[in-house]
Each structure stands twice: as C-alpha cells, then as structure tokens.
C-alpha cells in the first residue's frame, strides 16, 4: 500500500515589510528560521533582531515586525 500523501498548500503574496523584494526575501527567510532555531556563539545563545547586507553596512534592517526596538516599519538604523 502506498503512503498517504502529506500535501500543503502555498498561499499567494503577503504584504512585504520592506519595499525592496530582495531585502524582503532575506528578511522573511531570517524571520522564518529564527522561529525554529536559536543562534549560538560558542555556548552562548545569541539574540538577533536585524541584519545588514555585506555590500552596504550602513543600513540595518529589522527581522521581525514584532520588535519594539524599531518603531517605524521602513525605518533603517545607521551605525
């Protein structure tokens, strides 16, 4: 007897957090992965709330819309 097929539906487009679709793709993937893993540095758990692109280290993007630290949706933080 063949296995029952576990199928899952894909949904359409979602409202992006960032207008740049390539930034949004990275943000969504990071947000997604941070909901199932805890990053570590040595034995220490590391909390991640943002990222920057290697080609432009002056702009920081937040990962999750939940984070209080970044009040504006499209606000970027310069270091």
């Amino acid at each position: 007897m063949t296995d029952y097929v576990f199928r899952y539906k894909l949904n359409g487009k979602k409202e992006p957090l960032y207008p740049d679709p390539l930034v949004e793709m990275i943000r969504a993937q990071l947000e997604n992965i941070l909901n199932i893993v805890i990053p570590m540095e040595g034995q220490r758990e590391v909390k991640i709330d943002g990222f920057k692109l290697l080609r432009d280290r002056s702009s920081v993007y937040k990962v999750s819309p939940q984070e209080q630290e970044f009040p504006g949706l499209f606000e970027e933080r310069s270091l």
């Binding site: 894909l10 949904n11 487009k13 679709p21 949004e24 793709m25 969504a28 993937q29 997604n32 992965i33």
Partner: peptide
C-alpha cells in the same frame, strides 16, 4: 513544514 512553506513562498515572490 511551515518553515518550508514560508521559504517557498518567499522565493516564489521573486
């Protein structure tokens, strides 16, 4: 499984 779904959706957006 939800992770895979969201990864695929995020890729299929671009």
């Amino acid at each position: 499984i939800e992770f895979i779904k969201k990864q695929l959706e995020s890729l299929l957006a671009i």
